[in-house]
Computed example of a mutant assay.
Amino acid sequence: MFAKLVCSTMGHQINRHRVWHDSVDYRTRCERCGSELIRAAEGWREYDGAEQAEERLPHPRERKQA
């Protein structure tokens, strides 16, 4: 809970080595609070899965190997 408060005031902490592309946008998790983030034109924001989930690929580690 404290981490969410810090992120809401100071911004999320991005680890640029853990960013991945979901076929639409770049995504990652906040290192501090663990929130799912998406890269938008104005910067990183929290990702809402209901937004456009049908068009996006899952994380590379979650994809089934063919």
Rank of each mutant, 00 (worst) to 15 (best):
R29I: 06
D48L: 08
E55L: 15
D48H: 06
Q13F: 11
R56S: 00
R29D: 13
R39K: 11
P60A: 02
A53Y: 11
V19E: 11
C33Y: 03
K64A: 15
Y47D: 12
R32N: 04
T9E: 15
R18N: 13
L57F: 07
Q13Y: 14
C30H: 04
H12N: 05
Q13S: 07
M10N: 13
R18T: 07
T9L: 14
H17Q: 14
Q13W: 14
K4D: 15
R16P: 14
R39D: 09
S35D: 13
Y26C: 04
E54K: 11
H17P: 04
V24T: 05
E36Y: 13
W44D: 01
A50S: 10
V19W: 04
D25P: 01
G49Y: 12
H12W: 05
Y26H: 13
H12D: 03
E46R: 03
E51H: 12
A53I: 08
R63S: 12
H21M: 02
V6Y: 07
G43T: 01
H59K: 00
M10W: 06
L5G: 15
E42G: 05
D22H: 00
L57R: 12
R29N: 11
K4N: 13
E55C: 06
E46K: 06
H17E: 15
W20A: 00
G43D: 03
V24S: 04
D48A: 11
E62K: 15
M1F: 11
R39C: 10
E42C: 14
N15K: 03
Y26E: 14
G11T: 04
H12R: 04
I14G: 03
E54W: 10
Q52G: 11
R18P: 09
E54P: 10
A41M: 05
Y26G: 05
M10V: 12
Q65P: 13
A50G: 09
C30E: 10
D48V: 09
C7K: 02
R63A: 09
E54G: 09
K4P: 01
S23F: 05
R32C: 06
Q65G: 10
L5E: 09
R61T: 08
R45T: 09
M1A: 11
L57Q: 02
R56A: 03
S35C: 08
Q65M: 11
A41G: 11
R16H: 13
E46M: 12
G49K: 11
R61V: 07
V6H: 05
Q13A: 11
E36K: 08
E36I: 02
Y47P: 08
D25I: 01
H17S: 15
E31P: 01
A50K: 12
Y47R: 12
A53W: 12
R29S: 12
R18K: 15
G49S: 03
L5N: 10
Q52T: 14
E51S: 15
D22N: 06
A3K: 04
G43S: 00
M1N: 13
T28M: 01
R39E: 12
M1C: 10
E55K: 13
R27V: 01
L5Y: 13
A40Y: 07
S35R: 08
E42L: 07
Y26L: 05
C7H: 00
E51C: 10
E46D: 04
Q52H: 14
W20Q: 00
K64H: 09
E42S: 06
L37V: 03
C7G: 01
L37H: 04
R16E: 15
